[in-house]
Design a binder for these strands. Structure first.
Lengths: 253, 253
DNA sequence: GCATTTATTCATCGGTTGATGATTAATAGC
DNA sequence: GCTATTAATCATCAACCGATGAATAAATGC
């Protein structure tokens, strides 16, 4: 007589083992796997466009495990956002430190900005999809009115203050306002460029590619540095005239 | 004996009248009211962060009416995004036309960019909350990887091509790639600046305000134009040297 | 003045969502 | 070797979601 046993798995999805897994060297780190899957989804669709079920399915774990590690969906998001921020923040500070030390009194705005951008652009050029996702995530948060400004500030302000301190040295005539606004323009240009929305591909009819980080790397620092210098250096012709604006005339007159 | 009638409204929400409303001059345009409410919500929380119930509640209509006018939630979103786009696109094209005609051969990059920015910045400075919301919405879409690039392209590419045509005249030595990338930087800087995330307020410890559109207006055109000129004008010292980058040296060596 | 179209609310459906308590199994501490 | 802790799945809940067909009432067209 045949022993009674589950004759068939019946469904395609076989039951996963319950309870704590064996401590095997080959067992994957579930926490990291969840973060990777969450990063992928959040970067594509934002906080509200993602369900924890999708993330769990991608990470091949139960949804309850997400709550076990990160409590709430928001907790998961914050963990994703913070994880890589630490890495690049450290690299950027070091890069600026090195440049400032090497350049000495020959410090320039372009040099500082280049030192600030280098670590990010290098990571982007490396081609790691996970970092690409993360940059896209930053771009979204940076442009989220509700809580984006607060999140960005909490995460990145220390590095930005370090950047601005170096720029102040390179541009001694700059006002504080000009420095902050110039950085704001830099921030917008950088995050959009790194977010790979495919916009420039369409606009240029395929001539330029969102994924071409080398092109961005060559152009961004000179472009932005030039803007900084224009606003923050005393112009020989006088500042007011340099800023005069075009007045839109009424076409009916 | 008392007449049988609904003694009390019971709930705070009284029943609304069913059927087509009387054509009174005082009756509000429901369609516009829905769009306004939707704009408000979408601009704050993005497409997925908004429920049609919230929008309906704000517009004081039933959710079925949203489907009556816009079919799906996505249809509502597209209608919101398209409504004001037409207005500013018309204004921006006209502004560039006027400038090009007036400037003649004295056309400059800063002049063109200024003509392009003027209509938007003027609307922003006017202080209408509905336009502020709309600009914040653009910023979010611009940085949405999944379908943002496509939506932005469909909506704004004609104007951008008009802008680039004018810039090509002002910068005859520019390569196509430089022009497109420079515009991309402009796009990122502009949309972030208009989205009022409060980031710069915190960063500058209250010195700069997200809502100070006059400050943005004074600074953006010179900043961006300077970047364009740097990339797109032949430099007297030669282009390659002007773009040389700072190499990060290994701190352990 | 009657029939059709337009504009609105009502009632409700099937599916999804974030979250949680119960259960199971392995490890770590003493 | 026993107990407490950690790490995982299972089963399920109440709330909410977008959508839709039916009902209703005014306006419009003939």
């Amino acid at each position: 007589m045949a022993v009674k046993r589950p004759v068939k798995p019946k469904s395609v999805k076989q039951r996963a083992r319950r309870g704590r897994p064996l401590k095997n060297d080959a067992t994957p780190d579930m926490r990291e796997r969840i973060l990777d899957a969450a990063e992928d989804h959040f970067s594509r669709h934002g906080f509200w466009g993602v369900t924890i079920r999708e993330v769990a399915q991608d990470a091949k774990v139960d949804t309850a495990l997400l709550h076990y590690y990160f409590d709430t969906k928001r907790g998961l998001f914050d963990a994703v956002f913070g994880r890589r921020a630490e890495v690049i923040n450290r690299e950027r500070i070091e890069s600026i430190d090195v440049y400032e030390r090497e350049a000495g009194s020959a410090i320039t705005a372009e040099g500082v900005i280049n030192a600030f951008l280098q670590p990010i652009l290098e990571r982007a050029a490396q081609g790691d999809q996970r970092w690409h996702n993360y940059f896209a995530l930053i771009a979204q948060v940076n442009n989220t009115p509700a809580w984006g400004g607060e999140t960005m500030a909490r995460t990145f302000d220390p590095v930005i203050h370090r950047l601005i301190r170096a720029l102040r040295k390179a541009l001694p005539d700059a006002t504080e306002e000009d420095l902050y606004w110039s950085y704001h323009f830099l921030s917008g240009a950088l995050t959009l460029s790194l977010s790979q929305t495919g916009r420039i591909d369409r606009l240029s009819n395929g001539l330029c590619k969102s994924s071409d980080f080398e092109s961005i790397g060559h152009r961004m620092a000179p472009f932005i540095a030039s803007g900084f210098e224009r606003l923050c250096k005393p112009s020989p012709v006088g500042r007011a005239s340099a800023r005069q604006t075009h007045r839109l005339t009424d076409p009916r007159s």
